[in-house]
Design a protein around this nucleic acid. Structure first.
Length: 597
RNA sequence: GGGGACGUAGCUCAAUUGGUUAGAGUACCGGACUGUCGAUCCGGUGGUUGCGGGUUCGAGUCCCGUCGUCCUCGCCA
């Protein structure tokens, strides 16, 4: 062993090691210089240990004090010394190693560091832009290392659990076939086939289904997926999914498996205990009660339906909404009448306006009736009736939206989260999981004037015997289920179609002509003709799940090397132009920017 | 693709209505200091105010364009 190599980490020495000669390796986290005595906080992944250089102490190498004095922050050094117990007020109780210090005998600079662009401290000081450019320095910070370690522990626990249940971890191609449905593909040119392209997978969906046809029965993969769409705080161009698929199963089997997996992995990864079974609500119920297909169940404040009452309201806006086929729903914000000023309510009105609501009707419940924007339409008996219908109490704030159902639910669903947040009802550290089931199979795409798959075209309808999709299309339920937590979708899955005839009918209904079906999905349709078992599965987004469980603001903090909102890497500079001969070899010419489509 | 916020020293920020030589903390360099742990104290270096153009006697500040980061709507089967 080379003499500089560590005997211990910077996080493990305690009073029990007193008197031992040790070697520590690490980065200089901080130093305090006192003329004749010098303190160096030495940091590694495991912690920080104080190294003390005392020029007068016997055993201290000649010249050591002067050499260490010249070292700076983030220099990588090796120190040999004796573990010494601290006494009295020298003990640092904030730190695991605070009972001891290492009295240096000798030290070596393994690599000196230039001043870093930003300080390596727990609370990020630098802008995210600077942090991303020097990501390796950002990742030296303790909170970042903590997130990566917890993420690894979580994923390890997932693997452990699934392997224990007989799932086979199988890699699927990264270079695959482009399918124009769904998100935009990342394309990779083929040199061997000029003018032709691979696509990076948006998910391993078809491959995992084919694994079921192959008889593998239980498949999983921690899979990287790619989607060339515009980004958000919770969205990256490449992201990681826990992807799994099972044969001979119904919804219940997949849900049971996922619940077991999450209970285990939440505990192992994050120390979070969750109860099973997760509550279940069907999609229509989730929308009706929470205005969302991914409700935050940490608090109640459910949407209340006032449509019938509104039908005979003196308030024209309510009445008209109902007679025009719309609805009126409201939120009872318990005890919040005093908490929200006129100005606050104006802000909430603007907020729901962003989701298409034309206004926000409101009232405050007093001892003798209502005050507020709709109070004059609800005097006397009408007011009492309204209060009774809502089971509202004096001191409550009432908020209403009247509009088409989609607008009412979207606006009130978002308002519920907003108000819940303001009132502190979205408790950090509380984790409420649930299943949302029975999604619609198809969704009307107004822009394209056609029906699209709500989940994806491989999702099975609840009723296998459906002969005509065109009738009551919006009412057809899918055998789909989402697992949601605290207002976020963690994962989405379904029982799949495993019959070629049903799959073809779905494709056809989605406007994919038979020739196109053959060309794009022929391999899948063929596979279904050779004995495809009933099967289903799910995919869970790892990045968002980790960020949520660790209370991170952005999924970028759950990813070692994330990309910016414009899908670039500030550290490597990707994407970047390539040499002309590289393009020539691929038979590709870049169009000038101006002629870009 | 649309909307919004931001861009000043290595880093984080300040700079009055458009007005003197663009400041502070920190980092860095030099000095003092033997028990600190965000050490302290004294001194110093450090600026194309993102970039380009314009208005003005005068622009960090106003206008136009552009680049970048973040948020958001569309988009994300």
């Amino acid at each position: 062993m080379a003499s500089w190599q560590r005997t211990h980490t910077c996080g493990e020495l305690t009073a029990q090691h007193e008197g031992q000669t040790v070697v520590l390796n690490g980065w200089i986290d901080n130093h305090r210089h006192h003329g004749g005595i010098l303190f160096v906080d030495l940091r590694d992944r495991y912690g920080v240990t104080q190294v003390t250089v005392d020029s007068t102490r016997p055993g201290t190498e000649a010249g050591l004090f002067e050499r260490v004095s010249r070292l700076g922050l983030e220099d990588v050094i090796s120190v040999r010394g004796v573990v010494s117990r601290r006494v009295g007020d020298q003990i640092n109780r904030q730190r695991a190693t605070g009972e001891i210090e290492v009295m240096a005998q000798t030290a070596t600079a393994l690599n000196e560091a230039e001043p870093t662009p930003f300080a390596i401290v727990d609370a990020a000081e630098a802008s995210e832009e600077t942090r991303m450019q020097y990501r390796y320095l950002d990742l030296r910070r303790r909170p970042m290392q903590h997130a990566l370690v917890r993420r690894a522990a979580f994923v390890q626990a997932v693997r452990e659990y699934l392997a224990g249940k007989g799932f086979v971890d199988t890699e699927t191609p990264i270079l695959t076939k482009s399918t124009p449905e769904g998100a935009r593909d990342y394309l990779v040119p083929s040199r061997v086939h000029p003018g032709e392209f691979y696509a990076l997978p948006q998910s391993p969906q078809l491959f995992k289904q084919l694994m079921m046809v192959a008889g593998m029965d239980r498949y999983y993969q921690i899979a990287r997926c790619f989607r060339d769409e515009d980004l958000r705080a919770d969205r990256q161009p490449e992201f990681t999914q826990i992807d799994l698929e099972m044969s001979f199963v119904e919804e219940q089997d997949v849900m049971d498996m996922v619940e077991g997996m999450l209970v285990h992995a939440f505990r192992e990864g994050f120390g979070i205990r969750v109860q099973t079974p997760f509550p279940r609500l069907d999609h229509a119920e989730a929308i009706a009660r929470y205005g969302s297909d991914k409700p935050d169940l940490r608090f109640a404040m459910e949407l209340q339906d006032l449509t019938e009452l509104a039908r005979r309201s003196a308030f024209q806006v309510f009445q008209r909404a109902v007679t025009e086929g719309g609805m009126v729903k409201g939120l009872v914000v318990g005890g919040a009448a005093e908490r929200f000023s006129r100005k606050d309510i104006d802000e909430l009105t603007a907020f729901v306006g962003g989701y298409g609501a034309k206004g926000l009707a409101w009232a405050k419940v007093g001892a003798d009736g209502l005050t507020g924007s709709i109070a004059r339409f609800y005097e006397g008996a009408a007011g009492k009736e309204l209060i009774a219908a809502l089971a509202a109490k004096p001191g409550d704030l009432l908020l209403f939206v009247a509009d088409k159902p989609a607008v009412v639910h979207k606006a009130l669903g978002e308002l519920r989260l907003k108000v819940g947040g303001i009132l502190g009802l979205r408790t950090p550290g509380e984790f409420r999981l649930a299943w949302v089931t029975q999604f619609p199979l198809f969704e009307w795409n107004e822009a394209r004037r056609r029906w699209d798959s709500a989940h994806h075209p491989f999702t099975a309808p609840v009723d296998w015997d459906i002969t005509e999709f065109g009738v009551n299309t919006g009412q057809i339920r899918a055998r789909a289920y989402d697992v949601v937590m605290n207002g976020w979708e963690l994962g989405s899955g379904s029982i799949r179609i495993h019959r070629a005839d049903v799959q073809q009918r779905v494709f056809e209904f989605l406007g994919i002509a038979p020739e196109a079906q053959r060309q794009k999905f022929g391999f899948l349709l063929d596979a279904f003709r050779f004995g495809a078992p009933p099967h289903g599965g799910i995919a869970l987004g790892v990045d968002r799940l980790v960020a949520l469980c660790l209370g991170l603001d952005s999924i970028r903090d759950a990813i070692a090397f994330p990309k910016t909102a414009s899908a670039t890497c500030l550290m490597t500079g990707a994407p970047s132009p390539v040499a002309a001969d590289q393009l020539a070899e691929l038979r590709i010419a870049a169009l000038p920017r101006e002629t870009k489509a």
